[in-house]
Design a binder for these strands. Structure first.
Lengths: 192, 192
DNA sequence: CGGTCTCTTGACGGAGTTCAAAGCTAGTGG
DNA sequence: CCACTAGCTTTGAACTCCGTCAAGAGACCG
């Protein structure tokens, strides 16, 4: 499972890692397994770890005043599960991250990753590229929320992330898109 | 005007700069002045510079298919004006950045800032902290767009950025919030 | 002054929500 | 192997918020 992480880093940084670097990385990441429905992070706790998913699927959500779950992220293989805000600030998280399938992760703390970045240049490049892509993706999502209709957002979602649709139930996808499950159902009927 | 930038960097990085570092920074940033309504970046061009605003106000927007301006950012003193996506990728920007008051900036290119970061550790810290805060702010905006009503978003905006309301006209604020100027006007009547 | 920019107000329509009910599916235990 | 339940999806009807269109009122500037 470490090979997957190594490949991911090399891919993102566009560089090969030396055997020494690989060993250093392996010694810092701790494996973890979660059963379906188990919590990786509970609202109110600090997001101490960032988890690289080697197998499985997770979702991140918060609960609004009416008691409804608002989904803000889906994660699958080769994604990093963490609440960035809490992970960066050390403050308690507003969000819950839950395994939606049996999931395998590789964990690292903020202190560890910061120390590693100083020793492995490829990791610095990787986090920079990741942050940039993340910012761009979030920005696009913002744009489609402001201008787009429910139908447009669903179609964009399906072309950009078709794999998610097979692994998460529709009412969760609806929540992620910021619409109700009923509206999503009606949109799908028109445009299957 | 350079002092303002130096103070900003020291504040963000929580560190003092040496005289040599200060000199290095001063030699890399180029001053620029823009009259109200002048363009800092035009859609279709590459965002070659990041501009630190020492005085003035700017807005960033794109034009949708109907010809309406969609405002995505406001900038004032101590903000960095640039299209992050174009600046990072070197590809043409979809956005226009325009001075909304007479504005003074300090400019730097991507190559320059990357070189500087390697020489001045405080700058590395600063960009990292900035990226994190930017990501968090964008994420919050996403959340309020998904769950909140027009009224909620306006109230959040007014508590978080009261100073913007005095410097930009309401129809631009409405566009930024993703609502029409008429709706904003009605919301304001209820909750002044 | 007149013209442009800005904000307000009203009437109407449409996209999407809410509420309620009924099918559908898969997992569980007898 | 079937029955039962819990979670998921669909459908319909009423309602709500917000956008669109249209018109008018200030405010600022040449």
């Amino acid at each position: 499972m470490y090979e997957q992480l190594i490949r991911y880093i090399e891919e993102y940084a566009q560089a090969r890692l030396t055997p020494a670097e690989v060993a250093l990385i392996k010694s810092n990441f701790k494996p973890m397994s979660l059963k379906k429905r188990a919590y990786f992070l509970q609202a109110g706790a600090v997001s101490k770890y960032a988890g690289f998913i080697t197998k499985g699927a997770m979702r991140q959500y918060c609960v609004d005043d009416k008691g409804d779950e608002k989904i803000v992220h889906f994660y699958i293989e080769n994604h990093w599960a963490t609440d960035r805000e809490s992970f960066a600030s050390g403050k308690p998280s507003l969000y819950t991250i839950e395994a939606w399938e049996d999931t395998d992760l590789l964990l690292i703390t903020r202190e560890q990753i910061q120390a590693l970045i100083k020793q492995v240049p490829a990791l610095a490049t990787m986090t920079q590229v990741m942050d940039e892509r993340h910012a761009i993706a979030t920005h696009k999502r913002l744009g489609s929320l402001i201008v787009g209709s429910a139908k447009m957002r669903y179609q964009e979602f399906m072309t950009n992330y078709p794999h998610f649709a097979q692994r998460f139930p529709q009412h969760q996808i609806a929540s992620f898109l910021g619409i109700t499950k009923e509206t999503l159902s009606r949109v799908r009927r028109q445009h299957p």
